[in-house]
Simulated assay, not measured.
Amino acid sequence: MEDAELLQRLEGFEIFGPAIVQRIAHFGYDKAVDTLSRLQSQKLISPAAEPNKWTLTSKAM
Score class of each variant (00 low, 15 high):
1 M>N: 03
1 M>K: 08
1 M>F: 05
1 M>P: 12
2 E>H: 05
2 E>K: 13
2 E>N: 12
3 D>P: 08
3 D>H: 10
3 D>R: 13
3 D>S: 06
4 A>I: 02
4 A>Q: 12
4 A>T: 06
4 A>D: 01
5 E>C: 02
5 E>P: 14
6 L>K: 14
6 L>E: 06
7 L>W: 09
8 Q>N: 09
8 Q>Y: 04
10 L>Q: 14
10 L>K: 14
10 L>Y: 10
11 E>T: 12
11 E>M: 11
11 E>G: 06
12 G>Y: 02
12 G>Q: 03
12 G>P: 04
12 G>R: 14
13 F>T: 06
15 I>K: 13
15 I>D: 03
16 F>T: 02
16 F>Q: 11
16 F>A: 01
16 F>P: 05
16 F>M: 04
17 G>Y: 09
17 G>E: 00
17 G>C: 01
18 P>H: 04
18 P>R: 10
19 A>W: 11
19 A>C: 04
19 A>E: 05
19 A>Y: 09
20 I>L: 12
20 I>C: 02
21 V>N: 05
21 V>L: 06
21 V>I: 07
21 V>S: 11
22 Q>D: 01
22 Q>L: 07
23 R>F: 01
23 R>T: 02
23 R>W: 01
23 R>P: 01
24 I>P: 01
24 I>Y: 02
25 A>Q: 06
26 H>K: 06
26 H>M: 00
26 H>S: 00
26 H>Q: 01
27 F>T: 00
27 F>R: 13
28 G>K: 11
28 G>R: 12
28 G>C: 04
29 Y>R: 14
29 Y>V: 01
30 D>R: 12
30 D>C: 13
31 K>D: 01
32 A>L: 05
33 V>P: 11
33 V>H: 15
33 V>A: 08
34 D>Q: 13
35 T>S: 08
35 T>R: 13
35 T>D: 02
35 T>G: 00
35 T>H: 08
36 L>N: 15
36 L>C: 09
36 L>Y: 09
37 S>W: 12
37 S>E: 12
37 S>H: 11
37 S>Y: 15
38 R>G: 02
39 L>Q: 08
39 L>V: 04
40 Q>C: 01
40 Q>N: 14
41 S>W: 08
41 S>N: 14
41 S>Y: 09
41 S>G: 14
42 Q>S: 08
42 Q>H: 09
42 Q>Y: 04
42 Q>E: 03
43 K>Q: 15
43 K>N: 03
44 L>Y: 05
44 L>M: 04
44 L>F: 07
46 S>C: 08
47 P>G: 06
47 P>T: 05
47 P>Y: 07
47 P>F: 10
48 A>L: 07
48 A>T: 07
48 A>D: 09
49 A>G: 15
49 A>E: 09
49 A>R: 15
50 E>C: 07
50 E>M: 13
51 P>I: 01
51 P>T: 08
51 P>S: 06
51 P>A: 03
51 P>L: 04
52 N>Y: 05
52 N>F: 13
53 K>W: 10
54 W>H: 08
55 T>Q: 13
56 L>M: 10
56 L>K: 07
56 L>I: 05
57 T>K: 10
57 T>Q: 07
58 S>W: 06
58 S>P: 09
59 K>E: 05
59 K>I: 04
59 K>S: 10
59 K>A: 01
60 A>V: 11
61 M>P: 13
61 M>L: 04
61 M>S: 10
61 M>T: 10
61 M>H: 15
